[in-house]
Design a protein around this nucleic acid. Sequence first.
DNA 1: ACGACAAACTTGATTCATTCCAGATAAGGG
DNA 2: CCCTTATCTGGAATGAATCAAGTTTGTCGT
Lengths: 151, 151
Amino acid sequence: MTPDFEAQLRAVSLRVTRPRLAVLSALRDHPHVDTDAVIDLVRADHPTVSHQAVYDVLRALTDAGLIRRIQPAGATARYESRVADNHHHVVCRSCGAIADVECAAGHAPCLTASDDHGFVIDEAEVVYWGVCPDCATSTKPTESASSEGTR
Amino acid sequence: MTPDFEAQLRAVSLRVTRPRLAVLSALRDHPHVDTDAVIDLVRADHPTVSHQAVYDVLRALTDAGLIRRIQPAGATARYESRVADNHHHVVCRSCGAIADVECAAGHAPCLTASDDHGFVIDEAEVVYWGVCPDCATSTKPTESASSEGTR
DNA sequence: ACGACAAACTTGATTCATTCCAGATAAGGG
DNA sequence: CCCTTATCTGGAATGAATCAAGTTTGTCGT
């Protein structure tokens, strides 16, 4: 599948520019990257792109709904291009790694608050906190010599 | 209920100091405040307390489990003293106001991921996004004809 | 009660993600 | 092809949070 980034941009009335195509391409190949990583990825192909351009592009694409911004507590902002469904994320407490988790309900908000305090709720964001497989094995190698793979 | 802050601190092997008692007191009276607000509240009683002391105290109390740190995407860190239950929050997209929402299940994690990718999950954090009653009325001209600016 | 030691605090500088600004460039409708 | 203006470049500024060095103070042992 080769996404037509140009068509995506035109569909939301955004001009088709090299930085924007590069950002979309970077996010397609690298889900859950932070702004700094996006800058590096973009500059691999277009070394002259400024950091401000990447910040502007990420904001424009987020506002347009082409990408999604995720920001786990205590971490810098990350972006992903999966926006069609409203899925959730697992975040590793140790290394910050992020993985996708399917949402039970296919539509937002997937949960209903018991008492909404009069708020008009349009989205329920779920973040699962835990330890990723890599960190689990590397931090506890002493006692779990036998049971390495619990997966 | 009058919490015995001194006993709480001793219970987790933390020294009883004025800045810590002041922070606990401030959080009891003002839920969901950010660090800056805590500094102001503490200095109302103890003007000489440094901002660094407040940062240190907030971290120490958070690590000890006496308070909880919450950080909605795009906002600064906020703290609350309600830690016994694992409840969730509604956040206003417009003004950032936060309200508590009871959790259906009384224990963490209250949700189970459909596919945990091998992660060892210990908590499911839920953030409901929406618009608070105040912002809803001020942006919709249906009912806010004249004076409203109460916040 | 007293002294010692380490935890905790004060002061001040520093980091780092993000935003602001002014001027240059280029996308795309006419 | 030209004009308008959205977008990009380069550089400075903001602000939450952290780091570092030195001083104070809570708590324990005698």
